[in-house]
Design a protein around this nucleic acid. Structure first.
Lengths: 243, 243
DNA sequence: AAATTGCGATTTGTCATACAACATTACCTT
DNA sequence: AAGGTAATGTTGTATGACAAATCGCAATTT
């Protein structure tokens, strides 16, 4: 039953208020990345609370990746990496997976990656082409039985293309998808394990090379088509493994 | 001086180890959503550490959205909502924005949303069509000067379509993009404020209706095209505001 | 019997103090 | 001046105490 009365000072916990306060200061750039925050003692004085409260506030901020705490030294504003944000997403996907995650990942890649490859074909620099070429060589050189290693190289190939769009939002949002590729791979090889291996790295390599050539030629349509073909093949591989 | 050897048991801090341990238990589903964790006192005994440490571990977990702590009651495994994960992403985007965020958002939408609309056209249910229809009515009924209100309805329209793909990954990853739409809107109206308003809700409505009709007809190609036209118009609107 | 109230026990929130572990600085020795 | 060492500062952990919120159960009221 709802009453007309609602909570007022939402965050009644002191550690919560102080967390907010420090977070705000960081968002306002009062403290920039790498800078040292006041010591626990100073924060106690500033806020007029006990060290317990300050420490718990700092702990929460560190858990969210906003600050790093170094024993004996102090608390510093984190050079914000995307890792903690990505981790949050991945944790959520893992915990809410009702079994559809793998298929959703496969489908999402088909939706997004062709377009990404197309944009990358337009925006890529020569340095990025170089990195892609190196990646192809690495895949060629990898031992045929080292599936995990190949997966890492595979992920990097697709990540490089996402980065080559020069769109930070795109590159960031694709990360959770790429992070889940090993799970997809594992699910494929878990089914037909040891016996007959459908895995054929030369096929993957061929697709990668086609995509690379299209991006090199700055041909978005062809890049997009090549990417879609690649992902369709991956999906077929996955579906075949379900029997 | 760095040695080539690094710590193995990475988290040397007790609170970190205990955080990990509890997190693992949650990931393993030893404690399911809504369930109550042992009390602080019990955890102290279990791990053989002080309450300080246990409390800081719980605080970190709560900051990451894995548990909720209720004073006088206990710590419970959180009904995991996507909010904290999304917040992390949004915070990261905000803090690392070098000025390109708004443009990246606009571009990312053009990459992703046409495909999404296409998939939604194939997978939408009648209930979802109903919700979209209601949303169109809401937009029609909104006061012309209530731009913030219209933005909320606009966001919901696009969110509904993303959900109608029935792909959790897609719906989740689009959230940070939608959350930033108000920022884009504000940047448009900040430029030509008060004077001549380029804002014309009837245009938006027309696009939305086209998209809706295509999705209703289960025509992915048309849905995709309509969505792209909509987003191109939005981009033009944005670019016009830059002069 | 059902609902409400009140009280005690449990649990989390905050404070204070003390000491350990680590980092930084200043000083001293060479 | 260079290098090592002690002093100092800062974070990590432990303990004890009490406040504040919640919960469970019995007593009371209706």
């Amino acid at each position: 039953m709802d009453t007309p009365f609602r909570k007022i000072g939402s965050d009644k916990l002191l550690s919560g208020k102080i967390e907010e306060s420090i977070e705000l200061a960081i968002r306002r750039r009062d403290y920039k990345a790498g800078e040292k925050l006041p010591t626990e003692g100073q924060l106690c004085d500033l806020f007029g609370v006990s060290r317990t409260v300050v420490r718990e506030a700092l702990r929460k901020l560190s858990a969210r990746g906003l600050v790093v705490i170094k024993q004996g030294s102090g608390a510093y504003v984190n050079e914000l990496s995307s890792e903690s944000a990505i981790d949050s997403i991945n944790l959520f996907l893992e915990l809410t997976d009702d079994g559809s995650l793998i298929f959703d990942i496969i489908r999402a890649r088909q939706l997004f990656e062709p377009e990404i490859a197309g944009l990358a074909a337009l925006n890529r620099t020569v340095a990025e082409l170089e990195e892609l070429a190196e990646n192809l060589e690495a895949l060629k050189a990898s031992p045929p039985e080292d599936i995990d290693g190949q997966t890492i190289i595979d992920i990097r190939f697709h990540s490089l293309i996402a980065s080559a769009t020069h769109n930070n939002v795109v590159a960031l949002l694709m990360r959770p998808i790429f992070d889940n590729m090993p799970k997809v791979k594992r699910s494929i090889y878990a089914k037909n394990n040891l016996g007959y291996l459908t895995h054929d790295i030369s096929k993957v390599l061929k697709f990668h090379e086609e995509i690379f050539e299209a991006i090199k030629k700055a041909d978005p349509r062809e890049a997009s088509h090549a990417m879609l073909a690649h992902l369709k093949a991956t999906e077929k591989n996955f579906k075949d493994s379900l029997e």
